[in-house]
Design a protein around this nucleic acid. Structure first.
Lengths: 337, 337
DNA sequence: GTTAGCACTCTCCCATCGAGAGTGCTAATG
DNA sequence: CATTAGCACTCTCGATGGGAGAGTGCTAAC
C-alpha cells in the first residue's frame, strides 16, 4: 500500500540515513530535496510509513530511521544502483591482477580489494567442489622413515601431510610407489581410495593411502575463508562506543562469519542474496547486513560477501559485489579450474 | 642508586599497576602490603623514584604509574616469574597437538594457544632458512597447455605455480620432464637454477625452470606471519576509548607487526628479547611492549612474540613465551625440518 | 489533501559543585 | 637522620541541573 509519494519519501529517508547516519527529520527532507510540499505534509507521510513498519523512531523527538523492512523495500524497489565507471573498473582490475603467487594470495588480495572498494568487511571463500578428486600424488623423502605426501587435487589445490613409516626408505623407492599410486588412484575420490584400502599386506603403503584419503576428505570439507576490511567498518559511527566496537571485532572472525553467512549453495549463481538485520540466521548479526554472491561455475564455486551495518551503502555495494563475482568467475574459468 | 627498599617499592608499584590498571598511591601500597612504614615514608620514596625517572604522575593528585624505565628495571631485576604448573602445561600441550594438518595449521593454532595463555596478542612467523633449497619438483597436467609446478622445499614446505606452455602437452611428458628436473636441480638454490637456465633451446622447459627459481626465491623471502588474540587485548582498560581501540585494531595486522617487531635473527636463540614502550622501533608502539623469542635451530628458525600494552603481565608472560619457544623447537626438531 | 502554528518532549551539551583521593610540605618525634 | 602526623592544596570524577535545539504530533485553517 505504498503510494508513489510515500515510496519516494521512504527512498529518501533511507538514502539520507545511509549517507548521514543521523535520524532523518521532515525538515531535512524538504530542505535537501525538491519535494514541493511542506514539512507538515512529509510528517504525515512519515507517520504513515512508521505505522506500516518501514521506519522507526529512536525516541519521541528524533527523526526517522529505516527498519529492516524499510531497507528491504529500498533494496528491492527503490534504490538506484551506483554504476562503476571505467576509471574505477580499471583500478579494481589493476589491483586484482597484482597477485603473483597462488590461489591463496589471489583470494586474500581479492578480499582486500573488495573491502576497500566498498568500505566494509569483505569475505571470500576458496572455490571448492562438492566431491573432491585426487589428481596426482607425490612422495618426497624427508629423512629415514618419514616422508611428505603431496596431493594435487583436481581443482589445482595442493594438500600435504607428513607420514612416518615402519622402516627407513629412500626417494627412489618412494618415487616408484608414487607412480603406482598415481596409476591406481588417479581421479579417485576419498571413498574410492578407502574402498581399495583393505586388500593390502604392506602397512606402509596402506598408511600412505589412508593419509591420501584423509587429505581428499579434508580438502572437500575445507572452506578456507579470507577476510578483510575490519578496520574500515569500525570507523563507522555505529561503533563509537567501545562495547560495540569490541563486540564487532569479536564477531568479525573468519570462522564465525562463515557460520553466519549463507553457504555457497544457498546463493544461486548469477544472483545476489541480500540479508538484512534480523533476517540473518545469527542473532549477533541483527544489526548487520550481508550482500552475498557465489562465483565460479558448477565445477568449482565459492562465495563472496560484503558485511556491514544495516545502514550500508547498498546502492554502491550491490553492483560492486556483482562485478567482483563476475570478475572472479572469469579468472577462475581462464585458469581452467 | 636504588636502595633496597626503594627497589621493593618500585617492584610493588609496577606489580600493583599491572594488576589493577589504576595509578598506585602510597596508601594503597601500605594497605595492601606489609611494609612496616607509614604512607608518608612511602611518599618520600615515591618522590625519589619519580625524580630518578622510574615512575610518573598522570597529574598532581593521582597515584604513580611506571615509566618505560621502571618497567625495564622490573623486568630485569625485580619481578618473580610465575611458574607454569603441571596442569597448565598439560592444557597447553594438549591444545598444541590438536593440529592435524600441515605446518600452516600448526602455526596458526600455536598463535591461538599462546594468545589465550597470556591474554594478549600472539605472533608467530613461519620457520625459514637463510637460503632455501629445492628438494623435489612435480609437474601436474591441468589441461591443454597448462600445468601446475609443485615444488617441495628442503624444509618441507610446498610452493606451487601455474605455468602455461607454448604447445599442448600430456601428463606422461610432464612426468618425464619432472624426472629430469629432479635429477638436475635437486638441492639447488634459486641462484643455481637461474645460472643453468641460459643453455637451453626448449622454451617450455626454460619456462618451468624460471618458475622454479622464482618459487624458491619466493619461499626464501616469505615470512608468513600468524596472529591471534586481538580481541583479548582489546578488552583491557587502555582501550576504553573508541579512538584507542580503532587505532589498535588498525595496527595489529600481521604485516605491520612483522615490521615493528625484531626479526628472527635479531633474537638470539634461547634468549628472550623484551622491548618496552618507546624502545620499540615503530612510533605507534610507544605504549606497547613485546616479548620476543626465536624458535627452531640454525637450520630453520622462526620468531614468536607476545604483544600487549606496556602494562602487561611480564611475570606471567615471560616464562610462557620461553616455554612455547622450547615446545615449538622440540616439535620442529622431531619433525626433522 | 495540505499547511501554518504551537505546545510538548526528549536529547545533548555545558557549567557547576562537592566529594574524594592523593600529593607535597612542614614540623615534630624517636 | 629517618620517620611520621598533620594539613593545605590540587585535580579528577560523578552528579546535578538547566537551557538550547531539534523534532514531533495535533489542531485548526486553507
Amino acid at each position: 500500500m505504498l503510494t508513489e509519494r510515500r515510496a519516494t519519501v521512504l527512498g529518501l529517508v533511507v538514502h539520507e540515513y545511509i549517507s548521514t547516519a543521523v535520524p532523518v527529520s521532515s525538515k531535512a527532507l524538504v530542505d535537501r530535496y525538491d519535494l514541493g510540499v511542506s514539512p507538515a505534509t512529509i510528517r504525515n507521510e512519515l507517520a504513515r510509513l512508521e505505522e506500516d513498519g518501514y521506519i522507526t523512531h529512536p525516541h519521541t523527538s528524533a527523526g526517522r530511521v529505516p527498519s529492516d523492512q524499510g531497507y528491504r523495500v529500498y533494496v528491492e524497489a527503490l534504490m538506484a544502483e551506483e554504476a562503476i565507471d571505467a576509471e574505477e573498473r580499471r583500478t579494481i582490475e589493476h589491483q586484482f591482477y597484482q597477485a603473483s603467487g597462488g590461489l591463496d594470495e589471489w583470494l586474500s588480495l581479492g578480499a582486500a580489494v573488495l573491502a576497500s572498494a566498498v568500505g566494509n568487511v569483505a569475505v571470500i571463500t576458496r572455490p571448492r567442489r562438492t566431491v573432491a578428486h585426487l589428481k596426482n600424488v607425490q612422495l618426497v623423502h624427508l629423512h629415514d622413515a618419514s616422508a611428505l605426501v603431496v596431493a594435487v587435487m583436481d581443482d589445482g589445490r595442493v594438500q600435504q601431510r607428513l607420514v612416518t613409516f615402519t622402516r627407513p626408505t629412500t626417494q627412489a623407492e618412494l618415487t616408484a610407489l608414487a607412480e603406482a599410486l598415481n596409476v591406481r588412484h588417479s581421479t579417485a575420490d576419498a571413498q574410492t581410495i578407502r574402498a581399495s584400502l583393505e586388500d593390502e599386506g604392506e602397512p606402509d603403503r596402506a598408511r600412505i593411502e589412508l593419509a591420501l584419503a584423509e587429505l581428499v576428505d579434508e580438502h572437500e570439507r575445507s572452506d578456507d575463508t579470507y577476510l578483510d576490511g575490519v578496520s574500515d567498518v569500525l570507523g563507522q559511527p555505529e561503533f563509537q562506543s567501545p562495547d560495540r566496537m569490541l563486540e564487532a571485532v569479536q564477531h568479525l572472525e573468519a570462522y564465525e562469519l562463515r557460520r553466519a553467512l549463507p553457504t555457497t549453495r544457498e546463493v544461486s549463481a548469477g544472483h545476489l542474496r541480500i540479508v538484512i538485520g534480523r533476517e540473518n540466521r545469527s542473532p549477533w548479526m541483527s544489526e548487520w547486513s550481508a550482500i552475498v554472491a557465489s562465483y565460479g561455475s558448477g565445477g568449482a564455486s565459492g562465495m563472496l560477501a560484503v558485511v556491514g551495518p544495516t545502514r550500508m551503502q547498498y546502492a554502491r555495494t550491490v553492483p560492486r559485489v556483482r562485478y567482483f563475482a563476475e570478475l572472479m568467475s572469469e579468472v577462475l574459468h581462464a585458469v581452467g579450474a
